[in-house]
């Protein structure tokens, strides 16, 4: 099936990848170790950027989960990210509750919103889902701005409560974001081998075959969307805590498209390294190329095209190569 070519280019590089799983594991462990000791060595601006980078990596991962397990693309994940972020901010501002309580609530909100979006769209084909997700992303700023009493309108809201009182702010933001990212990646690695994960992969490749083994299309669509939205919402909660502010500006259609860019550039990987690459590209490029700000859309657009065309020609090349077996 053609979808798998792009979505899962790992099919192509599967055997070499399996030959070096240990290497990958060691690399991931090394990266975690470096990230864990970094705060002792570096300045607070880098830490701040990296915390955002981790948070965005979770958002990128949520899109990758949707693409990889659902074969669907969304450009409206900024909606679910914003939902998580605003849940944390609103609960602090209006109820005085900290992250310990608002984080689980944010997850629930993301889950519920994912269901709410997926249930009516469970029979839509992929293109319609992309269109509907675009509408979702565009309606978000209106909602945020006009529910000013709760959301602070254009200004947005601040988050100031600590997760652990008495611990340095920059440090706890950084470690919280890092821990959240690592936990999500571990959970997703486990999910790949689970009953549900494998069922979703079968349903994506051959929906009818999946149905013949009791895996219905609506179950697959709803589950994968709810999962993806929950992850996106978690990412929002981390963004809110790590940046200590939320405003409609951070959650536009562009952010939704950028999450997709991150996901495509990381080849829809759900590993820690892939997520870091995706999150890094969409966080650090605009920050460190601030002078070249206007070039960012062109850069991202080219990245989307290049990765897509390469993945496609890769599969074409593979077909030309002499087949093995037989």
């Amino acid at each position: 099936m053609a979808v798998s070519e792009l979505v899962h280019p790992e099919g192509a590089i599967r055997s070499p990848a399996r030959a070096v799983p240990d290497l990958r594991k060691w690399l991931a462990a090394l990266v975690v170790a470096v990230l864990a000791v970094l705060p002792m060595l570096s300045g607070s601006f880098l830490l701040y950027s990296l915390s955002l980078c981790f948070a965005n990596a979770i958002a990128v991962l949520s899109v990758s989960v949707l693409v990889r397990y659902g074969g669907e693309v969304s450009i409206g994940h900024s909606f679910f990210v914003a939902l998580g972020a605003y849940t944390v901010a609103v609960m602090e501002k209006h109820l005085g509750l900290g992250l310990w309580i608002s984080l689980p609530v944010a997850l629930l909100m993301g889950f519920a919103a994912g269901l709410l979006f997926a249930v009516p769209s469970r029979r839509m084909s992929g293109i319609y889902l992309a269109v509907a997700s675009m509408a979702l992303a565009l309606s978000l700023p209106e909602l945020l701005i006009h529910m000013e009493r709760w959301t602070g309108g254009f200004e947005g809201l601040y988050i100031s409560r600590d997760l652990l009182p008495g611990v340095a702010k920059a440090g706890q933001r950084y470690y919280f974001a890092l821990a959240a990212l690592i936990l999500v990646c571990l959970a997703m690695a486990h999910f790949r081998g689970s009953r549900q994960g494998m069922a979703l992969l079968l349903a994506r490749a051959h929906p009818r075959a999946a149905e013949a083994f009791g895996i219905t299309r609506s179950w697959a669509r709803i589950s994968v969307f709810a999962l993806s939205a929950t992850l996106a919402s978690l990412s929002g909660a981390v963004v809110a805590f790590a940046s200590s502010t939320v405003s409609p500006n951070s959650f536009t259609l562009w952010s939704g498209i950028f999450y997709l860019v991150g996901s495509v550039v990381s080849l829809q990987g759900t590993s820690l390294l892939a997520a870091l690459v995706g999150g890094g590209i969409i966080t650090l490029v605009p920050q460190y190329l601030a002078g070249a700000g206007d070039y960012v859309p062109i850069l991202y657009g080219s990245a989307l095209l290049i990765v897509t065309l390469l993945a496609n020609s890769g599969s074409g090349l593979r077909r030309l190569l002499p087949g093995k077996g037989a």
Binding site: M1, S4, H8, E10, G11, R68, G193, R195, M198, A199, L201, L202, R204, A205, H206, A209, A210, F213, G214, I215
Partner: peptide
């Protein structure tokens, strides 16, 4: 069969 699953995993989906 799903190209993303190993043969064994594909067979495991029969037990879903």
């Amino acid at each position: 069969l799903s190209p993303d699953l190993t043969l064994l995993e594909n067979v495991m989906t029969g037990l879903t």
